[in-house]
Design a protein around this nucleic acid. Structure first.
Lengths: 250, 250
DNA sequence: CGACTTTTTGAGTCTAGTCAAAACATGTGG
DNA sequence: CCACATGTTTTGACTAGACTCAAAAAGTCG
């Protein structure tokens, strides 16, 4: 276990949340299924297996047989790949309602990245075969999924552009803004990113080294652009932005 | 016009190819529609507008209103984004049967990248509204599209990993292998990439400068890993691989 | 042939990586 | 509660890979 346990559980998973009584509500709120009728949700419900995962645990490994489609019911999950050099590359951080695993379901494929619980999580799993059946029965699900995946492709290409054309400083700024937009909570005139998120994670997200991230973050802190740390009682790690614009962070 | 016209048209678009008589056949071969019945294709046919584009011409610009879904019937199209710094980033090179434009159709979005004909092309276009209608009428189209987009997401993330963890040399090698896999033609014990493809293009594809690409390619040529040039009469530009494995190109 | 573009090569510089050590946290057991 | 072990972050000095600038060489086309 490389990550120390947080002093406070940000996303404490109350066992009751994943109990049967709440599942219909959670499933019905997922982007994939939100548009479906209550009866349809009830029919899908028994196909969904829920699974509690503790922070730091692997949900699956790159290369494993892709038997399930996964949906984050609660908590945060990170997707990463490990290069031959041993370098970890953080591809995405997922939270409530987002899918991961494989949508290229036809044919038994393998996972192309590793999924790790960033916080304690509740994960919903649907077998590839069952998801195929759902797609056949409710064609609109495929259209919603198409929307979600297309959006993700656009984001991934945005990252490709940033990796190709930004300096380390710009990439780190862009990554923080991305996180702020995704998991940030508005706080007066700044944004709080409440995540157990190390310099290593940020380095893996920006194609930089931890040392470089540390130096850049120190510079940002000096310029009063961000604050970070496990401050203010309850928060494990936070980044608070004051001005945006600066440093040409597109 | 930054690119000189090629002495030989690699993908000369015979006007007849895009004539009515051939359209049904072409449309029926697209991955999106391949599985449909002849009658379905015939019904879709009138919704498809074909459009000849000369090498170097812009098909649309980043930021334009996304009114159409595009499909490459013939030729090669490159997708790129231009960073604030002016740096071009080449995101993908598309060929026969591949889509481009926007699949996040619901709601009038804009194109997130610029599309330029790399060779003379024949492009099929379907308006967003018509494509929506097709998705409703033939739900399997959405599933096939889902498959295609998911695959593209996996590829994009592969590139993210490479940009994050590879040296310039490795990125260039990986890009060549990617091109070889996609548009390469087997040739005895090597692969021919028959494309009008400048050092600039390769630089934009790998997040390197033209100078670095030139130096690396010279080194590869020295080691007899690749040959390149407008040699052998008809070919405008070619990369021929002998050994693969080398240099840790994953 | 001569204008133009692309590619190659060279020299100098700088960003970010590497290696190493100190400072800081966090959690444990005496 | 303190001292220690473990892991993370910060700082510093050095290095190197890739960029910039500049000019020559090679190709392309009218």
């Amino acid at each position: 276990m490389t990550r120390p346990k947080s002093p406070v559980r940000l996303d404490w998973v109350d066992p009751a949340v994943c109990s049967l009584e709440y599942r219909l509500k959670i499933i019905g709120r997922l982007p994939f299924f939100r548009h479906l009728s209550a009866e349809a949700i009830a029919k899908i419900n028994p196909l969904v297996h829920d699974h509690d995962v503790r922070a730091g645990e692997r949900i699956y490994f790159e290369g494993d047989d892709a038997k399930f489609l996964h949906l984050v019911a609660m908590g945060k999950v990170k997707l990463l790949r490990v290069a031959a050099s041993g370098r970890e590359v953080l591809l995405d951080i997922l939270h409530g309602g987002e899918y991961f695993g494989v949508l290229t379901a036809l044919g038994g494929r393998i996972y192309t990245e590793t999924a790790i619980a960033q916080t304690d999580c509740c994960i919903l799993q649907i077998s590839s075969a069952d998801f195929e059946a759902i797609l056949s029965e409710y064609p609109d699900v495929a259209r919603h999924a198409l929307e979600v995946v297309s959006q993700r492709l656009v984001e991934s290409r945005e990252i490709v552009q940033q990796l190709s054309s930004f300096t380390a400083e710009q990439r780190i700024a862009a990554a923080l803004l991305r996180l702020a937009g995704k998991v940030g909570e508005a706080r007066d005139d700044n944004v709080l990113i409440q995540l157990p998120f190390s310099r290593q994670d940020l380095a893996a997200m920006t194609g930089a080294t931890t040392e470089t991230v540390s130096r850049v973050m120190s510079r940002f802190a000096e310029e009063k652009l961000v604050k970070s740390g496990a401050q203010v009682g309850d928060d494990r790690e936070r980044e608070a932005f004051e001005t945006s614009g600066g440093k040409g962070c597109s």
